[in-house]
Computed example of a mutant assay.
Amino acid sequence: MSRVGKMPIAIPQGVDVSITADQISVKGSLGSLSRPVNKLVSVKNEGGKLVFAPVNESAEANAMSGTMRALVANMVQGVSKGFERKLNLVGVGFRAQAQGQKLNLQIGFSHPVVKDMPAGIKVETPSQTEILIKGADRQVVGQVAAEVRAFRPPEPYKGKGIRYADEKVVIKETKKK
Rank of each mutant, 00 (worst) to 15 (best):
P54W: 13
T67K: 14
S110V: 09
I11Y: 01
M117G: 03
E147S: 04
A165W: 04
S25L: 09
M117Q: 05
E46K: 11
A150M: 12
A53M: 11
G14T: 03
M1W: 07
E130I: 10
I9N: 02
M75K: 10
D16G: 02
S29L: 12
K6R: 12
L33C: 07
E167L: 06
N38D: 15
L33D: 03
E130S: 11
M75C: 12
G159W: 10
V4H: 01
S127H: 08
N62M: 11
V148A: 05
G48D: 02
V90W: 00
G161P: 03
R3I: 06
P54V: 10
G161S: 04
K172N: 14
M64L: 14
V72C: 02
P154G: 11
R85N: 09
Q77H: 13
T67Q: 14
V79W: 08
S18C: 07
V17E: 12
N38F: 04
P112L: 07
K175D: 03
F83H: 10
A70H: 12
V148L: 09
M117F: 07
G108V: 08
F83C: 02
M75W: 10
P126D: 04
N56A: 13
I131G: 03
L87I: 04
K122E: 15
V90D: 00
K122M: 06
K176G: 00
I11W: 01
K6W: 01
R163S: 14
Q99G: 00
R163E: 03
Q13G: 00
G161Q: 02
G14A: 11
V15Y: 07
Q77E: 14
A145C: 06
K158N: 05
R95H: 15
I133P: 04
G159D: 09
G31R: 04
S58E: 13
V51K: 13
D116S: 15
P118V: 12
G66Y: 12
G142D: 15
E124N: 10
V169P: 09
M7Y: 01
K86G: 06
T125I: 09
P154H: 13
S42Q: 15
I121S: 03
G108Q: 11
K158T: 06
G142N: 15
V15Q: 08
M1D: 09
M64K: 14
P153F: 11
I131K: 04
E130V: 13
V55K: 15
I9P: 01
K176M: 08
N56S: 15
G108P: 06
E155S: 01
Q77W: 02
T129C: 02
A98C: 09
V4C: 01
